[in-house]
Structure formats: structure tokens, C-alpha cells
Write a protein that binds this DNA or RNA. Sequence first.
DNA 1: GCGACAG
DNA 2: ATCTTGTCGC
Length: 224
Amino acid sequence: MLTEAEAKTAQEHIRRAAVLEESGPPPGAVRTVAGVDVAYDEGSDLLAAAAVVLDATTLAVVEQATAVGRARFPYVPGLLAFRELPPVLDALDRLRTTPDLVVCDGYGLAHPRRAGLAVHLGVETGLPCFGLAKTPFAFSYEAPGPARGDHSPLLDAGEEVGRALRTQPAVKPVFVSVGHRIGLDTACAHTLALTPRYRQPETTRQADHLCRTELKKALATMTR
DNA sequence: GCGACAG
DNA sequence: ATCTTGTCGC
């Protein structure tokens, strides 16, 4: 959880970034942020998707939903959306509340055809959305400075498609890219607000934990 | 042509 | 994504 001072600073950064980006959600409009993730069982096509909604300021869990199903598309680099979008949409549909912003694992505009998972998800739901990946995929970047918040452009043949962002001091950066109805500065400001303690955003951590737990439960139930 | 390649 | 041993720090 963020301290009151940290939360205030983070919200101020988000507000300042948003006013500089016409495409960003209006300042103060993001009250809740959802994290989505999918866990797979190797050997079978069983999967579990999770959507966890957090209070954008306190990072407290507001609501969560899951969806167990079968993989209908293999993992192919560049085609992740075809595999993950259906189960993620199922989990989001089971939410009673509609989040103001969605953070997904993977990329948005940082994609060979500028159409990563976060773009598909945003266009499909109409919600502001951005992608956050743990590896640079096929892109290049210069190491950002060592401080939390330091960043450098993520490049695809010289074109900036996202940003390598340091979320914890001296810890390897995460890779942020725009998905839908949000700007890169705003997406990075939200990422920092969601990472008071760990490299990965609280949204991703919560969703990751939930879908793994749900997948194990589904597998156990099936054996009986 | 070959290797690398979000999750 | 998933598997997997040991190690480090709060």
C-alpha cells in the first residue's frame, strides 16, 4: 500500500501528465485500475484468466473476477492477442464494476504491426488501456538511469514505440507502451503509482496470483 | 537463409 | 507461460 504522501505525489504526476495529453483520461477520472492476466496448464489446453480491480489511490482491491476455459490459439510471438484476448474479456465481463483503466501483460503499440494485446483489449472494450511487459521483445533501448522513474525510449527501427521504465532503484526496467485512449506519459505515471514496492505493478501481481490460484483449483476439481 | 521472439 | 535449487533480505 502507498503512504499518504506517496499516493499524493503519484496522483499529482498522473494529473500533470494527463493534462499534457489530449488522448489521456481527464485528470481525476481514473478512480479504479484493473489488472488482467492468464495462467496456462502445460500439457492440457486448460487456462484461467483473472481481472482484479484496485482503487487507483490506495491500491486496495475493490473487486475481482475469473474465467476458466480452454486455449483456442497457440502462443505465437506477435499474435499474443489471439490467444489471450478471449479469456481476458471473459474475466472482465464477470466484473460488476467497470474499471477506469486496464493494465495488461505484454505490449500495446510496441508491436510489429502496432497492434499488441493492449490495443486489441482497448479497442474491444473501449476502455483506456496500456501494456506492460517484462522483456524488450524485439525492440531496442538504452539502459535508463538507476533511479526509480528513470526511463528511456523503446525503439523499433528508430521509432519510439514505448518506454523502458525503472520502477525500482537498480532493478531491471519494465516496458510500457500505449494501448488505447491513453498517452505514454500518463501510462508511465500510472505504472509508477502502481509500483510503490515491487518491480511489477500491483495490478499485475494481484491478477497473476489470482489466475494461478484459480487454475490450480480448476485442475484439482477436474481430477475428482 | 537463420535466429530471435510479449505470454 | 511453466519448471526448478539455492540464496538473499526484511
